[in-house]
Every structure is written in structure tokens, then in C-alpha cells.
């Protein structure tokens, strides 16, 4: 994995983060919210190799920690996404090529997004944060799963195309 790809992918993720913060966050989704950034990150992670999973998981989480409105400790999302990347890495061999299996990819992304939010809440509890009632949190996770499942198929082809552009020639082979 080249350093240029790391930089390009990081910039791409930051751009998606910008769109999430300035545009998507304004939309009041019923019950819970949809995070374009988390869904995009999960799509990127689902197509990476072991090293890429850990690196982009960490960088993706770090970008989320940059959010100006975040009230959580800096590094918490980095920890969460590194762990998610590790989960992907552990199960990498059982996940076959998802490029030609859109439903499987969508399901994986939705589940991974929900697990990442759940992990964030759990780590927050371990760090002594109060994130609201259990029922409300479960409702938010469920709503996020639903919205991610519905919306991911719309933008996934674009993400895949951009990711292919970000690969170096050697990595495309």
C-alpha cells in the first residue's frame, strides 16, 4: 500500500466528512440519523486488505474525531474504527469479492455501521460518558441500520469508482 494512496484516500474521506457535516447532518431523518461518512468508510474498508483495513480504519476514525461539534474525547472514534477495521481483517477471508454482490455489500456496510456505533457507545460508557437511555440508543442504531441499508446502494457505485481511481497502477492489477 503506497503512501500516495493513503494520502488520496484520506483526502477523499475528509471530503465525504465535509459533506456529512455541512449537508447530510442538516437533514432530519425520522427516528435516527444516517451517516454518509460512516457508510462510505465501511464501503472503503470492505474492499481493503489487512493493512489497509487497520490504517484506513484509524485514519477514518481520526477524521471523525476532528468534528467541531464532537463532545467525546479525541481519539475515541479512531479507537472504534481501528477495532472495526480489525474485525474486518479477522473476517476478511470469509468475505468474498463484494464488487459483484451489491446486496451482500449493502448488508455488510449496514451491519458494520451499526456495530461501529454500538462500539462507540460501549467505549463511551467505559470512559464514563452518558449517552442517553439504552432504549433510545438501540432505536438510533436500528434507525441508522435501516437508513444505511436504504441509501447505501444509491451512492456505492460512485464510491467504488472513486476508489478505483485512487488505486495506483500496481494496486489495480
Amino acid at each position: 500500500m503506497s503512501s500516495i494512496r493513503v494520502i488520496n484516500t484520506s483526502l477523499f474521506l475528509f471530503l465525504v466528512f465535509l459533506i456529512q457535516t455541512t449537508l447530510i447532518a442538516r437533514i432530519n431523518f425520522p427516528i435516527g440519523g444516517f451517516s454518509l461518512y460512516i457508510a462510505t468508510l465501511m464501503v472503503v474498508l470492505s474492499l481493503e486488505n489487512r493493512t489497509g483495513l487497520l490504517v484506513f480504519g484509524f485514519i477514518g476514525g481520526l477524521i471523525m474525531d476532528l468534528s467541531p461539534s464532537a463532545q467525546t474525547p479525541f481519539g475515541q472514534w479512531a479507537l472504534v474504527m481501528t477495532f472495526i477495521g480489525y474485525l474486518f481483517a479477522v473476517n476478511r477471508d470469509s468475505v468474498v469479492d463484494l464488487n459483484d454482490r451489491p446486496l451482500a455489500l449493502t448488508s455488510l456496510v449496514s451491519v458494520a455501521a451499526s456495530v461501529s456505533i454500538l462500539t462507540f457507545i460501549v467505549i463511551g460508557v467505559l470512559l464514563g460518558q452518558n449517552n442517553g437511555g439504552l432504549l433510545r440508543n438501540l432505536l438510533v442504531i436500528f434507525a441508522n441500520f435501516i437508513w444505511t441499508f436504504l441509501i447505501t446502494p444509491i451512492f456505492t457505485p460512485l464510491i467504488l469508482r472513486i476508489r478505483k481511481m485512487l488505486l495506483t497502477n500496481r494496486e489495480r492489477v
Partner: peptide, 14 residues
Amino acid sequence: LLLVLLLVSSLFLI
């Protein structure tokens, strides 16, 4: 090693 390094970095930042 990379995983441990990244986890430690995250915990350090926290």
C-alpha cells in the same frame, strides 16, 4: 504490530 500500534495511538490520544 500495526494493530497494536494504532490501538495504542488511539488510547494515547484519548
